[in-house]
Design a binder for these strands. Structure first.
Length: 263
DNA sequence: ATCTATTCCTGGCTGC
DNA sequence: TGCAGCCAGGAATAGA
């Protein structure tokens, strides 16, 4: 499931291939990918030049000479450069520089043109790397809910998903059900440092490949080998040796060490 | 204003 | 071996 490190890896592999190129033709193979208006979207994309490509939270934002192409990969989405469209290809851009395939088995992902930056991109919270620890602590402590759902809230902080939230909370020794306003300033700053650390390490490893994720060149990441809690239910905690627990928090599978992460 | 539950999707896995 | 039923979960939406 692509989160900030995976999307960042895709952007880095894709940017030199597509920025400066032109879209010759756009085709949607599934209307869902276009939000049920495939013909109109395809017509808007055709002929556009790609001026820039950047990441915003978990979105890939292609800045065009007219409007934007915003892509969200959700669970199983992939953006593949110069790949042959497979059975799960949902959209294909023919560029003068090559072919860009949007592949998505489960069809949660979106590949949308809009005249202005979409509101869900506009509303994104700050990027973890651009936030000072003190600002992060202030924002966190101003909220009354549980920390895990808050970290998953894209309006609070842009880019974290289920894997990296569990990993960051473990590193900061914070229970996923801890109440945000009751986390000490010191520990909130430690949490920010843990978020930045785990995201940086994951980017350096090319992201985590659990089942579907690959970058734009089709390469898997390797950070899944360094997960300390995610997907390790029943296995010994790397810090204390007691078994990792899995609970459900906000309808999400949540992995933590009850001994190291006290509530 | 804030938080919680539901919905969308389908390949792969579990269990009978 | 076959198949029904469940599971994964990000984010929009509806409801409390």
């Amino acid at each position: 499931m692509p989160e900030l490190p995976e999307v960042e890896t895709i952007v880095r592999t894709l940017r030199p291939r597509v920025v400066g190129s032109r879209i010759l033709e756009a085709r949607y193979l599934s209307p869902l990918a276009a939000g049920h208006q495939p013909e109109w979207m395809a017509a808007q994309l055709a002929g556009r030049a790609i001026v820039d490509l950047r990441r915003a939270g978990k979105f890939l934002v292609f800045e065009l000479d007219q409007g934007f192409l915003s892509v969200h990969l959700r669970m199983t989405g992939k953006l593949l450069f110069d790949a042959v469209p497979g059975p799960f290809a949902r959209a294909v851009l023919s560029l003068d520089a090559g072919t860009l395939v949007f592949d998505d088995v489960r069809q949660f992902g979106r590949f949308l043109w809009s005249p202005a930056l979409p509101s869900n991109v506009e509303r994104l919270g700050p990027e973890p790397f651009e936030l000072q620890p003190s600002e992060f602590a202030l924002r966190l402590r101003a909220r009354r809910g549980h920390v895990k759902p808050l970290l998953l809230n894209q309006q609070f902080l842009g880019g974290l998903g289920n894997i990296y939230v569990d990993e960051a909370l473990f590193r900061a020794a914070i229970h996923p059900l801890a109440v945000a306003s009751r986390v000490s300033t010191r520990r909130a700053q430690l949490l920010h440092a843990s978020v930045v650390e785990v995201l940086s390490e994951a980017i350096a490893a090319g992201g985590s490949s659990i089942s579907d994720y690959v970058d734009a060149e089709g390469r898997a990441g390797s950070f899944q080998r360094f997960h300390r809690v995610y997907g390790r239910e029943g296995e010994p905690c790397l810090q204390c040796g007691k078994p990792i627990h899995r609970i459900v928090v906000g309808q999400r599978g949540t992995h933590f060490c009850p001994a190291c992460q006290k509530r």
